[in-house]
Write a protein that binds this DNA or RNA. Structure first.
Lengths: 237, 237
DNA sequence: CGCGGACTTGATCTGTCTCAAGTGCCGTGG
DNA sequence: CCACGGCACTTGAGACAGATCAAGTCCGCG
């Protein structure tokens, strides 16, 4: 069967998977970007619409942003979930290929095309960041193409745990104490991000809760009593 | 319902979708890259394995390459399908985040990390290319998250039609004459790329053939008699 | 000619979607 | 202070697209 095909090639150490997303900057982080101006938007503000002229490149300084695409019949896919440090607005042609919406109140640095053209150091920074986002997108493609609903939700939750990026989940990492996660996304947004329906997301959260893998009162404030146990459900281990 | 939610926001002109993938260089294209050495690999050669030390950055000069990830139980997702001009090997950390395998016999330019560090112009070229691939990946996330099997296969076929990238499919483009496509991928590879099983891919090809949307004798040499009719099945119109 | 691998096709199963009620919570106004 | 509405979420029942399991069929090659 398909599953057996590549089993031999698998090596556990390879699966370092998702990078954490942060919606708050580190306290010591620089809060301005030379050569850019800065803007604030309320949650839900549409920063870029798909098909807009590509006017600028943005970096998230504080808060969260979602990039999404729509199909004519209204199906929506949230393509990237961006936190502090992530960049967007880097289409190829003169037109934005995805829409960008503030997930939370955000502070953004706005780089004009002229500024980008004039500043090789800035380009290098954007380049480096894009590489990181590319890797996250690779992981997300694996999730969308091959993971079950439960694996998707578990993976999603793990991505929101700061300090658990990269190799953190290989073996028992220190700090298995309970972790609190603020989702900042509605069930519908989570569904559109994970390629599921809102009902399936809701059912999966309920099932995880029933299994004591997570708990919550407000539905976007999740407590994970044991990260490793949740991580085992991501499919990556 | 979910579908109706965003209908109002939809605007047909936005959906320029996929970029074409070419497995053969343009005849007039430069065939070497200064500052890089060049290598050839046979089809199926594993260029990079997931978890390898990130040794170099590669550009495809001729042929096709697939980037893929595996899950421990053997599930495979082909993350990117690369043709001439595309680049890979740009992970974030010191370790490759995806495996890369030659899909056809390939010629690659190999850029050592030192060469990349030393050459801002090269970085800019890689950056520009990465932006293009990012857009393709955005489109692919939409496919994996939200499209039906038939839409996936139709989208896949359209991506392999040269000159049909970008805005080409908006309205009736000229050149509706029949087009010949060489897939260069097995049914299993197509399945792993589209997040389906081999049986579903096979059935979908058969269904498209029965509907006279495509025809083929060898199963990887597809003829599309009317591109626009196929394009209408991609879900993007 | 006969073998093997890749593909196709059929029958059945199942995870997720769809459709349809709930339920809970919060804010508003009486 | 409480009734009311609205919205987001949850839950249930049933449908269905695609997965799984199991034969075939086709074709290239020795």
């Amino acid at each position: 069967m398909e599953a057996a095909r590549n089993e031999a090639r698998f090596n556990n150490a390879k699966y370092d998977a998702a990078w954490a997303i942060r919606f708050r900057p580190e306290p010591e982080a620089a809060r301005t970007r030379p050569g850019a101006h800065h803007v604030r938007y309320a949650a839900r503000h549409l920063v870029i619409d798909e098909g807009d002229a590509a006017r600028a490149v943005y970096e998230v300084l504080d808060g969260g942003v979602i990039l999404f695409k729509l199909l004519p019949d209204g199906r929506r896919q949230i393509i990237e979930l961006l936190g502090v440090g992530d960049v967007f607005g880097l289409a190829v042609g003169p037109v934005a290929d995805v829409a960008a919406e503030a997930l939370t109140p955000v502070r953004l640095a706005v780089f004009e095309p002229a500024a980008v053209d004039a500043d090789p150091a800035l380009r290098d920074r954007l380049f480096a960041r894009l590489r990181a986002q590319m890797c996250a997108l690779h992981d997300h493609a694996l999730l969308l193409g091959r993971k079950s609903a439960q694996e998707r939700v578990a993976t999603y939750l793990m991505r929101l745990v700061p300090g658990r990026g990269g190799l953190a989940c290989i073996g028992a990492a220190p700090g298995n104490a309970e972790v609190r996660i603020e989702l900042r996304m509605s069930r519908q947004e989570i569904a559109d991000y994970l390629g599921l329906t809102i009902e399936t997301v809701s059912r999966t959260f309920s099932a995880l809760r029933r299994a004591n893998l997570i708990s919550y009162r407000k539905q976007d404030e999740v407590v994970v009593p044991n990260l490793c146990r949740l991580c085992r459900l991501t499919g990556a281990h």
